[in-house]
Design a binder for these strands. Structure first.
Lengths: 338, 338
DNA sequence: CTGTTAGCGCTTTCAC
DNA sequence: GTGAAAGCGCTAACAG
C-alpha cells in the first residue's frame, strides 16, 4: 500500500505537506502542489479512510436503515428508489452509504447500536416510521444525528424528517374520486402502526367528512399481504349493502393485489370500480389499467433526507425540521366517472 | 468517547490486556476477563472500528454494487431481495455492507475505485453482469476479492460467481410451454448485453431446437421499457402470420408490462396467450393471472454470494468458482393448454 | 510556505 | 498471565 510517506519521500517534502496538498490547503505553493500531485498519480496513491477517519473523528458515511426484512414490504420498489436518491447525494459529496439489514427488530437494533457506538457512521437515515419505534427512541436519546423518511410518531417538531404531506395527498386523491361522482369509497392500507398509513387514511376520512359522506369502519381494511387474506377482505367489502364504487389504496404494490383480486371476482376497473393509490413507482404504469396514483417523488425523498442529514452532521447547522416533498396526482386509467 | 484506556484505568489493568479481552485471548485469566467485561459494560465501551481497521488492515465491510441507476431496472424488487440475503450474512458475521450507487457508468467506476483504493471494503459483490464491464475488468486486474451475482461474461472459470443455471431454467420453462401444446413461442427479454438475458434466451432457443420448432428472429424482442415502446413491439409480434401462443419473458417485472399490453390489445391470458417468466418476486403472485415463473431464490443468491466473498477475504481459502443456486418452476395461472 | 511532533484508538510483538 | 512500547496512516497544532 502506498502511503503518504512514500509520496513525501518521492517528492522530497514532509508527510504533512502531502497531507496539506490532499486537503488543498491554500498555504501550499502551487509548485509543490503540482509536484506532489504528480507523485501521487505516479505512485498510485489513495488516502486510507480508516486512518483519516480515526483522526478526523468522522467517517463521512451515513447509515441507512430499512424496515425489518421480515415483512414482504421490503420488496417494494420504493426502497431501491430512495436508495438511488440517497446514493446520488452521498456520491456527490464523497460520502459512503452503509446499509443496515436485520431480520428481526432485535437484530436491527443491534446493528444500529453497532453503527452508532462503533463510529461506523456520522448519521443515520430511517426509511420507515412506526409507532413507538425502539430505534427512533434510541437515536433521539443518544442525540445521534438522524433523519426519518416519513413522519415521526412523536416529537414531530424535534426530529428532522423528510416527508410528503400525506394527509393532504390522501384528501386530494379522495376528493378526486368524489369529484368523479363516487359516494361509496373504501380505503385499503398497510400496517396500522405505520405513520404513512395513518396520515393517508386520515386524509381520506377528512375528505369524506367534508363531502358529508359516511365514514364507516367496514370500509377500511388493513393488511400487508394482498394475495390470499387480502382477497377475502375485498370480497367482504364488495358484499356490503352499499359496496364501494371507489377504493383508495395506500400503496402501488398493494394496488396490484387489489387489482388482481377485483379482476378475479369479476369486477372491471374502472368500469365497475375505481382505484387510486400512492407512490407512482415504475410498475404503476405497467398494470392494467394503469394506475391513477399520487406521485410522491421517492427519489427526492432520498435526496433531501441525505442532504439534510449531511448538513446536520457537518456543521451544527440546524436544517428545517420538517421538509415536505411536494406530491402530484398522476392521472391514468383506473378511475371512472359515476 | 469511551476508549480502551478508560476501561484499563477503571479496571487497573493495561490497555493491551483490555484489547486481549476483546479478542477473547485464551491467555487472559477468567478473573480479569470478567473484571474487564464488567467495566466495559458499565462505562458503555464500544470498540472504535476505524482504529481497529487501521491496524488490522481489514474493514469487515463488503461493498455492494448495483447496476447503473440510470435505467429503470433498479426499481426491480430483485434488488431489495438480494440485499436482504447479503444483509443476513453480513449481520451474522458482524460485517457491514456498503452500498454503491452512481448514476452513470463513470460515476460507478469512480465509486468502486474509491472503495478499493481507499480501503473502504474487503471485497465487492457485483449485482449485475454484462459484456465487457469496466468494473469487472478492473477488479480482476487488481486481483481485488469480488464475486458476481450472475455469470461473468468471460473468465467464467476464474471469477467466483453465484448464479442460477439460467440456460437450463430457460429450457425447462420453454419445454413446459411446449408440453402444454404450444408451438409458436416468443421470447421477450431485457437488454441484450446482460448475461442473464443471453442465458435464458439460449435456453429458450435450445428447447425449441430440440422440439424441432422454428426459432425465428421476429419472435425475439429486447427492451427495457415495457410501457410504450414495448407495447408496439408486442403488437407487431401478434400481427405476425403465425402469432405466438406462448411467450417466455425474462423477468417478472417485464411480465407485468407484457400482461398489461396483452390485456389492452384484447388478448386474454392464459386463454389466448400463455406467459411464463423468471424470478418469482412477490408481485408475481399479485398479477392477474398470477404468473407461472421460475423461482430463482433471490434471497439465496444474496446469501451465498456474501458467504463466498467473506470466505474469500478472510483466508486464502478458495471457494467454488461457480456456485449454482437451484431453481424451480412455480406453476400458477398464466399458462393454458393448446 | 513548510517541517517537526504528537496523537487519534487499537493491536501486537517482545519482554518479564 | 500481563505490561510496555511501537506503529497502523493520517491530521493538526506549533514552530520557524
Amino acid at each position: 500500500m502506498v502511503t503518504i510517506k512514500d509520496v513525501a519521500k518521492a517528492t522530497g517534502v514532509s508527510p504533512s505537506t502531502v497531507s496539506r496538498v490532499i486537503a488543498d490547503n491554500p498555504r501550499i505553493s502551487l509548485d509543490t502542489k503540482k509536484k506532489v500531485r504528480k507523485a501521487m498519480k505516479e505512485l498510485g496513491y489513495h488516502p486510507n479512510v480508516n486512518a483519516r477517519n480515526l483522526v478526523a473523528k468522522s467517517t463521512k458515511t451515513i447509515g441507512v436503515v430499512m424496515p425489518s426484512s421480515a415483512d414482504k414490504s421490503l420488496q417494494n420498489p420504493f426502497f431501491p428508489e430512495v436508495l438511488r436518491g440517497i446514493g446520488t447525494v452521498t456520491h456527490d459529496m464523497q460520502y459512503s452509504m452503509m446499509l443496515s439489514s436485520g431480520g428481526t427488530e432485535e437484530e436491527m437494533f443491534a446493528e444500529v447500536e453497532r453503527m452508532v457506538y462503533g463510529s461506523y457512521v456520522d448519521g443515520i437515515i430511517l426509511l420507515y416510521s412506526r409507532m413507538n419505534d425502539r430505534i427512533t427512541n434510541f437515536l433521539r436519546e443518544k442525540e445521534f444525528p438522524f433523519v426519518i423518511v416519513g413522519k415521526p410518531y412523536d416529537y414531530v417538531s424535534e426530529i428532522t424528517h423528510v416527508d410528503n404531506d400525506n394527509y393532504k395527498a390522501g384528501k386530494e386523491i379522495t376528493n378526486y374520486l368524489i369529484d368523479q361522482g363516487h359516494e361509496h369509497i373504501a380505503f385499503i392500507g398497510g400496517s396500522r402502526d405505520l405513520i404513512v398509513t395513518m396520515d393517508r387514511e386520515n386524509g381520506y376520512k377528512a375528505a369524506l367528512n367534508e363531502a358529508e359522506l359516511p365514514v364507516c369502519e367496514a370500509y377500511r381494511i388493513h393488511s400487508e399481504f394482498l394475495q390470499s387474506g387480502g382477497r377475502e377482505a375485498i370480497e367482504k367489502l364488495l358484499q356490503l349493502e352499499y359496496s364501494p364504487t371507489g377504493i383508495v389504496v395506500s400503496d402501488d404494490l398493494m394496488s396490484l393485489g387489489v387489482l388482481s383480486a377485483l379482476e378475479e371476482l369479476g369486477y372491471d376497473v374502472p368500469t365497475d370500480i375505481s382505484l387510486v393509490s400512492f407512490n407512482n413507482v415504475y410498475l404503476s404504469e405497467l398494470t392494467s389499467p394503469a394506475l391513477t396514483t399520487v406521485d410522491i417523488q421517492i427519489y427526492q425523498l432520498g435526496v433531501q433526507s441525505a442532504k439534510a442529514l449531511i448538513e446536520k452532521t457537518q456543521s451544527d447547522f440546524v436544517p428545517e425540521k420538517r421538509i415536505i416533498i411536494p406530491h402530484e396526482i398522476v392521472y391514468r386509467d383506473s378511475v371512472g366517472e359515476r
